[in-house]
């Protein structure tokens, strides 16, 4: 979606302002939002792409102004409500109503092994890749209202394939629960002046990881 999350190349957002000696979390609520999000993710009620869509699918002004754990909290609440694991009024009243069990409820002793295992999105290759290293491609100019990992700043721009990375779960489909639909994913290099025109900084380029359905041969 062309939402607040698609930030590449936007202006007016100010300096970076890194915080010296920054703690991992700023306050206990951030710790809890982080842990609740990861723990509920283990339940298998949704996938990483659906979680990303839940975070970005909102008023772009609100997204941009929110701190990152506020974004995570918003996304977690949206997913819980969508899956009917949290019902209207529960959060406000603090009174739990009866809801169905979640698919999987990990215990403390399983946390470390689940983290170590991770969740690979690489799948068996199917078919041959359409593009090879060195091929010139143009990113499609598309504007899906649902989740995509094709940033607006690359659409219609031409770059060169620098690596073929195998078949990965296709987020645009997975986020909608339409299935994993694995597609070849490529590393593509775009020159700065192709992306930003004469306003580009000298001698700079951006590499992106892009799924085959995002690309046309140039």
């Amino acid at each position: 979606m062309n939402g607040g999350q698609d930030l590449g190349g936007k202006h007016g957002l100010g300096p970076i302002n890194p915080e010296a000696n920054e703690p991992v979390f700023h306050g206990e609520w951030e710790e809890r939002v982080f842990a609740l999000t990861v723990a509920m993710g283990f339940c298998g009620e949704w996938n990483i792409d659906a979680a990303r869509f839940a975070r970005e699918n909102r008023d772009p002004a609100d997204y941009i102004k929110a701190s990152y754990y506020h974004v995570w909290l918003y996304g977690l609440l949206a997913l819980l409500r969508e899956r009917e694991l949290l019902l209207d009024g529960e959060l406000e009243s603090g009174v739990a109503q009866e809801t169905r069990p979640a698919k999987n409820q990990p215990k403390a002793e399983e946390v470390l092994s689940k983290l170590k295992l991770g969740g690979s999105c690489l799948r068996e290759t199917s078919g041959v890749p359409e593009f090879s290293v060195g091929d010139k491609i143009t990113a499609k100019n598309i504007s899906p209202k649902t989740h995509t990992r094709l940033p607006a700043y690359t659409r219609g721009k031409t770059g060169i394939v620098s690596a073929v990375n195998g078949c990965f779960v296709f987020p645009d489909s997975n986020a909608q629960f339409y299935g994993e639909d694995p597609k070849y994913c490529y590393s593509v290099r775009f020159e700065g002046n192709e992306l930003w025109g004469p306003d580009a900084e000298p001698n700079s380029c951006v590499y992106l990881d892009m799924w085959e359905p995002y690309l046309d041969r140039a």
């Binding site: 982080f34 979640a102 215990k107």
Partner: peptide, 13 residues
């Protein structure tokens, strides 16, 4: 609701 184990949350943190 039994969806999360508080000890698992502490461990993640």
């Amino acid at each position: 609701k039994g969806y999360v184990d508080p000890a698992a949350l502490d461990q993640l943190i």
